[in-house]
């Protein structure tokens, strides 16, 4: 019962946090510099790991699909399978998991430290709402960079699949055929579905990270616990939300 109360409490405070943050949206131009900074930390800095991860996810997907589909004489459908899987599911989810692990944890640690060391209290004392100063830039930034990051990841994943198709002898599908089958069934609606999904994931991850950080109480030990809670809750939220978003968009 206590856990349920905590969960509902966290959920309610997250909603309040969102409301307060977006209530200060008119002051967004003033925090543009902070938005750019967060976009750099969250988007640009994640580019390397997203590239590596997406390339190999695409490659592995093409390899597995190729090994299975060649038994059915349907190798020409590898492109379709890799394309759709990446853009609708794996791309957004993998980027979101990366974001939760790399950016979400950092945000929680930073905000939890600020909270524990009473920096947040200092902001409030100076009449600077922490929602506007700390949360809104991060939320705006994630809404801006998440589709870009996902799209870059997806396209690199597609190229990873193409490389496998070209250079793995047992698959041996020409990249032209791979991309032809990839674009044959793919529609902009599916790509948009993936980007919308990524946008929701990104927003939820950063919201959970900020909320968990700002709700941290106690000493330095709590910072570590807060980071763990933030990442675990983010991952669970991603997978649960994934199901419902997919169902809603289908």
């Amino acid at each position: 019962m206590n856990k349920l109360n905590q969960l509902l409490d966290a959920f309610g405070s997250a909603l309040l946090l969102t409301g307060r943050a977006f209530a200060s949206l008119p002051s967004a131009p003033r925090i543009l510099k902070r938005v750019i900074e967060q976009a750099f930390l969250g988007g640009y800095s994640s580019l390397g790991i997203v590239t590596i991860l997406s390339f190999f996810i695409g490659a592995v997907l093409a390899l597995q699909a190729g090994l299975t589909l060649k038994d059915f004489g349907a190798k020409q459908l590898i492109g379709t399978l890799v394309g759709e899987s990446l853009v609708r599911e794996l791309g957004p989810v993998m980027v979101a998991i990366l974001l939760a692990g790399r950016v979400g944890s950092a945000i929680t640690a930073e905000l939890a430290s600020m909270k524990v060391y009473q920096e947040v209290d200092a902001l409030v004392t100076m009449n600077i709402p922490p929602e506007r100063f700390l949360v809104l830039p991060r939320l705006l930034a994630v809404l801006l960079y998440m589709p870009m990051l996902t799209m870059i990841g997806v396209i690199i994943g597609w190229f990873g699949g193409a490389v496998v198709c070209k250079f793995v002898e047992i698959i041996a599908v020409e990249p032209a055929q791979y991309f032809q089958s990839l674009t044959q069934f793919l529609t902009t609606e599916k790509v948009l579905d993936g980007l919308i999904k990524a946008e929701i994931f990104g927003f939820v991850i950063i919201l959970i990270a900020c909320n968990t950080g700002l709700r941290t109480t106690g000493g330095p030990r709590e910072i570590g616990h807060a980071v763990t809670r933030s990442v675990v809750f983010s991952l669970i939220s991603i997978l649960v939300l994934d199901y419902f978003i997919t169902k809603a968009l289908a």
């Binding site: 750019i36 976009a39 988007g43 640009y44 580019l47 960079y145 589709p147 870009m148 990051l149 870059i152």
Partner: peptide, 8 residues
């Protein structure tokens, strides 16, 4: 960040 957004 600008480059990142342009590429994206």
């Amino acid at each position: 960040v600008g480059l990142f957004f342009i590429i994206g």
